[in-house]
Nucleic acid binder design. Structure first.
Lengths: 356, 356
DNA sequence: TTGAAAGCGCTACCAT
DNA sequence: ATGGTAGCGCTTTCAA
């Protein structure tokens, strides 16, 4: 047919139109798949496009339509299995509905998150899914929500924010675990979280900026209080931001003479580290220490003993968030929804009665 | 000052220019940070922009400059720890160099990958990082490379492709493991991979479309052959595409009367499943079966026994790919590079001499 | 230093 | 059914 097709980047509708011997408008109609064209012309344009190796410019398309077919996602850390699985849920829905995903890691840093949202908005994403690092200053979220681009909060988000949110019933899960521990005679129960406070000490749930974790700690403290356990705030450890930090915190905690007899790990990365420290210190699970971790990570089922976990519907969280966003994009403008997905406790063998 | 700022989406340079009492061109110069402007005018424009809450439209900017500040990434499955870690390396470099990342999952499907690349190109990404599902038909890769947008292949890519590539020394790693096994007296050594063939049976390395895996199997077979082991092709199992598939394959394999005494798992998801099946069948590692897995996943260090792995510099793979891409974007047009990162065998306790 | 005007490639509206 | 044309919001000559 033709010799070497020209560099694709420069072929425009105008070129195709010229080659097909029709107007730019007509060529655009068939290339863009809108309006009405006769079969004859359609074939001619299609042929011309192919022979020129025409590649549409989505940027130009977005410019005029005002829609980019893109959704922006801001997560704490894509390396964390929690987020990578949620991301899978998001991207699956995106693909099915014809959207493309821009991903930005905030590193759980509020400033980075703000700039990420600004960048995404500047790139004219059609909507946003954000897993906010902090909820104390949520002005950028409110602003984003008001920018006209739909915003859905993932896994976090406080009740005070009038924004679509998809979370798990973290509080409920934490309450269940705590009750179980207490029923088994545990009194020294520790909670470990990556969330940090300015002075790395915990005083009250309001110190915690991450909604999902705050709710869990509230549930934990509530149940403890109702059971007559006092000053359980002292057993909440914050700042397990990296495995190294967790290692240090867990080591100090478990070497203490008044060490806990039960531990709740706020995510699987923390749970893994606690497990390792136990080994290192020669503590036997569950005889010496009972352990429950949030997130049903793969490793939890192959350890000896396998560890009891809170299974969160992580993929479903991402999926639901994306579906909700797409609905908004399709014009659903009902008031802000709050989707709460059920968690489930997977009993394995890391929980036992408190040592005497 | 002003009353409620207008909906940000509609504020353009023209609006700012009008408010600041300068021409559109001048306003654009300060807003875009190019050209020269007097301090006085700069201040006026900046003030006007702030009071109107001006948000630049990157789409329009990209239209005229031809650069979008975006790189497209196509991976097999972001849920896989391997890819999520590599992705972390990529996004970190991207952020540092002012780029934004569009992520598409191919699901290891060649057609999906093609359409992903097309989409990305249509969105005018500045460059691409792809982890190709198959290498047999790499026309779309060649075409992408010729489109003028730099392309870097991640973890995979054959020698015949004249495209920038970042991989690990998989072959070397596989050779080492195999030699070790043979030295320990193993003769029935199985290799399990997710890569599949049309009839789900393995005959020769050329059946394998994924470069990294093909290289490993080549290394495996080579060492076997030199050691005088014959028909080791029969011990290569393909099609462990999901945990369920792996479960089935591993179960059949390990229940067989001529079951292997050593297994090499081609990734950590497969390794985990093999570990589970061993448990279920009551096989003791390493007494009954030696196990080595590729990818130093978190779970491998907490099992009993902990499992020996090939540690690949996964984060570094992503990082190197992104750095290489950014160099290209900055004009480096030397000929295609092939970066090979070193792997390391992490000795743990899942390898022993062959059972008698 | 500043301004006017011409595009970037496409869609969308209004005629014909 | 088809063509002409006016933008989208920005950058980038070219003059002044």
């Amino acid at each position: 047919m033709d010799q070497s097709p020209p560099r694709s980047s420069s072929v425009t509708v105008a070129d195709v139109a010229r080659k097909a011997g029709v107007s730019k408008a007509t060529a655009a109609r068939v290339l863009g798949g809108y309006g009405t064209v006769s079969d004859h012309v359609r074939d001619a344009v299609t042929a011309a496009a192919r022979s020129l190796n025409y590649q549409p410019n989505e940027l130009a398309r977005s410019m005029t339509t005002g829609r980019s077919g893109t959704i922006g996602v801001v997560v704490g850390d894509i390396e964390n299995p929690f987020f990578s699985l949620a991301m899978r849920g998001i991207t699956d829905v995106a693909r099915q509905t014809g959207f493309t995903v821009i991903l930005i890691n905030s590193g759980e840093d509020a400033d980075a998150e703000k700039s990420a949202i600004r960048t995404l908005l500047a790139k004219r994403v059609d909507g946003l899914i954000v897993s906010p690092a902090k909820e104390s200053d949520a002005d950028h979220l409110r602003e984003a929500a008001r920018s006209g681009r739909p915003l859905v909060l993932l896994d976090r988000g406080s009740e005070t924010l009038d924004i679509d949110t998809v979370i798990a019933d973290d509080r409920h899960a934490a309450e269940n675990i705590t009750r179980r521990f207490i029923a088994l005679g545990h009194r020294r129960i520790a909670y470990l979280t990556a969330c940090d406070t300015p002075d790395h000490r915990f005083r009250a749930p309001t110190d915690i900026n991450t909604g999902s974790v705050r709710r869990r700690i509230e549930g934990f403290l509530d149940v403890c209080q109702k059971a007559g356990l006092e000053r359980m705030e002292d057993w909440v450890h914050v700042g397990a931001v990296t495995p190294e930090h967790t290692y240090r915190i867990a080591t100090v905690m478990l070497k203490s003479s008044r060490r806990p007899t039960a531990v709740i790990a706020s995510d699987s990365v923390i749970g893994l580290e606690v497990f390792k420290v136990c080994r290192e210190l020669g503590l036997t699970i569950p005889t010496d220490l009972s352990l429950v971790s949030f997130h049903d990570a793969d490793w939890t089922s192959v350890t000896t003993p396998p560890v009891t976990v809170v299974r969160q519907p992580v993929y479903g969280l991402g999926e639901a968030a994306a579906k909700l966003l797409v609905e908004r994009l399709n014009g659903n403008s009902a008031e802000a929804t709050r989707v709460v997905l059920k968690t489930e406790i997977v009993e394995r063998a890391s929980v036992a009665t408190a040592p005497a």
